[in-house]
C-alpha cells in the first residue's frame, strides 16, 4: 500500500476575494452618521460657548444645569441680592478660581456621556468613522480599539456613573428649588417645568444605562437566588432597550433648559408664571 503523500510545506495563507470597493452598499449609509455628527457637534459647540460665557446662568429661582452645583465663590457674586440661596456648595472653590464655574462641574456629565456605551457607538461611527456604517471599510490603517491607552479610559464609565448619580440628586434639588420664588414657596413658572422635566430625563438616562443595568442585576450569576434584583434588572433592561432615544432626548433637553434659563436671565424672555 502506498503511503499517502504528505505536503512538504505548509500551504500559503489564502487571500480574500479581490474586491477593491470600500463598500458595495447601495443604500444611503452616509445619512445616519452625518446627522449624528451634526447633532453631537452642535451640542459640543453650544455647551462650550455656554460653559465659557460665565454669565446669565441664574435667575431666581432658576439655575442652569450647566452651572449646577455652582462650586466657585464667584457664583455667590453672580447671585448677589438674590433672596434664594442655592445650591449648598457655593464657595468650595475660592476666589483663585477665575474662569467659569461651569468648567468644574461639566466634567462629570460630559465624562459620563463621553464614556457611555451608546455615545461611544455614536461618535465612533459618525466622527471617528470606525466604522462609519456596517460593512463600510474604515479609513484607519491600525486599530486597537479600547484595549490600550487612550481609549482604555472608557472603562472609567462606572466612576462617572456614580458621580452622575450625585449630580442628578443636585439637579433634582434645583428642580425642587425652582418652586421657591423670591416671593415664597409654592409657585411655578415655565422654567420650573423645564427644570423638572430635565431632572426626570437625566434620571431616566442614568438609570437606563448599561452600567446601571449591570450593577442592579447583570453582575449576578444566579438570578434565581436574587428575585428582587432580578425583577429590577428586568425593569432596567426594558429601559435600557430605549437608552439611545433617552440619551438623545436628555442631551437636547439639557441644552434647551440652559438656553431657557439664559434667555430669562438675560431679559430676552419673560418667564410665564403658572401659579
Amino acid at each position: 500500500m502506498t503511503a499517502p503523500s504528505v505536503p512538504t510545506a505548509a500551504p500559503a495563507p489564502r487571500a480574500r476575494a479581490a474586491i477593491a470597493a470600500r463598500t458595495l452598499r447601495t443604500d444611503n449609509w452616509r445619512k445616519e452618521p452625518t446627522i449624528t455628527a451634526a447633532v453631537l457637534l452642535s451640542f459640543v459647540a453650544y455647551a462650550t460657548w455656554a460653559a465659557f460665557k460665565n454669565a446669565d446662568y441664574y435667575k431666581p429661582p432658576y439655575l442652569s444645569p450647566f452651572y449646577s452645583p455652582c462650586m466657585a465663590s464667584i457664583c455667590g457674586h453672580a447671585r448677589a441680592g438674590a433672596t434664594v440661596v442655592h445650591p449648598p456648595m457655593v464657595g468650595l472653590f475660592g476666589p483663585w478660581w477665575a474662569i467659569s464655574p461651569a468648567i468644574i462641574v461639566l466634567i462629570i456629565p460630559l465624562g459620563f456621556r463621553f464614556t457611555c456605551y451608546y455615545y461611544r457607538k455614536a461618535y465612533y461611527r459618525s466622527i471617528w468613522r470606525s466604522p462609519a456604517a456596517c460593512a463600510v471599510q474604515e479609513p484607519h490603517a491600525r486599530y486597537r480599539g479600547e484595549s490600550k491607552f487612550p481609549l482604555i479610559i472608557q472603562n472609567a464609565h462606572r466612576w462617572f456613573f456614580y458621580l452622575g448619580l450625585l449630580l442628578n440628586g443636585i439637579l433634582t434639588y434645583d428642580a425642587v428649588e425652582a418652586f421657591h420664588f423670591p416671593s415664597g414657596w409654592g409657585h411655578a413658572g415655565f422654567g420650573t417645568l423645564m427644570l423638572v422635566v430635565n431632572a426626570v430625563l437625566l434620571w431616566a438616562y442614568s438609570l437606563s444605562c448599561h452600567a446601571c443595568r449591570h450593577i442592579i442585576g447583570g453582575r449576578l450569576k444566579h438570578f434565581s437566588r436574587h428575585p428582587v434584583r432580578f425583577r429590577l434588572w428586568g425593569i432596567v433592561s426594558k429601559w435600557n432597550a430605549r437608552h439611545m432615544e433617552i440619551a438623545w432626548v436628555s442631551l437636547v433637553f439639557v441644552a434647551l433648559t440652559d438656553l431657557y434659563v439664559r434667555l430669562v436671565a438675560s431679559g430676552w424672555v419673560t418667564d410665564p408664571r403658572f401659579f
Partner: peptide, 15 residues
C-alpha cells in the same frame, strides 16, 4: 481574546 478591541458599534447585532 481581545474583548477590549470591540468598540460597541453594534454591527454584529444589526446583521
Amino acid at each position: 481574546q481581545g474583548l477590549g478591541y470591540c468598540n460597541v458599534t453594534k454591527c454584529c447585532t444589526e446583521v
